[in-house]
């Protein structure tokens, strides 16, 4: 009981300000996983509405976005979200920073669509009945009334990913992080979902290999070997990134040494 009240008090006093426009600040943030450096001394502040992350596999993109909602804590340096260092506010962050994972089958926790959506609401303290009603209304608002009773396992990949995004949005976060959300989707579904995402009021941080979608973003961070290689508007960063891919495909072997 004592632990419970203590945790609650800590959350209330954490002083996170969800209306701050610079929502994330990394100050010399480094991360090691199993003794391997994954992110190295990153200093950057995020306030743009749509930020894209590009980089090769293993460049640290996924770890970077996981720092933003305290799924990972920096090994050294500080990550502030809405003005507060992540270790202090870890328990409160899911309310403010939503996270959509790459594979919907790894994200959806409940057997049916309605339960999946209602979960976020019960997490916020709604009782089961009103959570269910709100979930239904929410699904209807997003044109998914027909999916309410469906088992998640019977949905198409696109529907699954849409439900995963809605399950996060129902908690009304200020920031939405998407870690390669289109990987398993066909072109049409990916286009539809990216249009849906573009129309959201949330601030977006998206990891993607789809340079066409990212071209419409406000800012692109290019990560390489755990560091920010380039940071700027898409018109500058994306052509440089694409040219680098071409160059490396022509000159490097599979193991990364020059040919």
């Amino acid at each position: 009981m004592a632990l419970w009240t203590k945790g609650r008090a800590a959350a209330r006093e954490c002083g996170l300000d969800p209306f701050r426009s610079t929502y994330a600040v990394l100050e010399g943030a480094s991360l090691e996983l199993n003794g391997q450096p994954v992110l190295k001394d990153i200093t950057v502040s995020l306030k743009e509405r749509r930020i894209g992350l590009v980089g090769l596999n293993g460049s640290g993109k996924s770890s970077f976005v996981r720092l933003l909602n305290a799924l990972r804590l920096p090994t050294s340096g500080v990550v502030r979200i809405f003005g507060q260092p992540t270790p202090d506010c870890a328990a409160d962050l899911p309310k403010h920073v939503g996270f959509v994972f790459q594979n919907p089958d790894h994200q959806a926790i409940f057997p049916t669509v309605e339960e999946e959506i209602a979960f976020g609401l019960t997490q916020l303290g709604r009782d089961r009945k009103s959570a269910r009603e709100e979930a239904r209304a929410f699904l209807a608002r997003h044109g998914c009334a027909g999916l309410v009773e469906r088992p998640i396992s019977t949905l198409s990949e696109g529907q699954k990913q849409l439900i995963c995004i809605l399950a996060v949005l129902v908690m009304e976060p200020q920031v939405l992080i998407l870690d390669e959300p289109f990987t398993s989707l066909d072109g049409l579904t990916a286009l539809r979902l990216s249009q849906k995402i573009a129309g959201l009021p949330q601030k977006i941080v998206m990891v993607s290999h789809d340079l066409t979608t990212l071209a419409a973003f406000d800012r692109i961070l290019w990560l390489e070997e755990g560091q920010v290689r380039m940071d700027g508007v898409p018109g500058d960063v994306l052509p440089a990134y694409a040219a680098d891919l071409e160059r490396r495909a022509a000159t490097e072997s599979w193991t990364g040494s020059s040919l």
């Binding site: 870890a90 899911p94 994972f101 908690m171």
Partner: peptide, 23 residues
């Protein structure tokens, strides 16, 4: 592992109403 991460990202198994540190 993935599902545990996804659950944590939405506030963990105890919910956000009775906020307790997850770690």
């Amino acid at each position: 592992d993935h599902v545990a991460e996804s659950l944590a990202a939405r506030g963990g198994s105890s919910g956000l109403a009775d906020t307790r540190m997850r770690r």
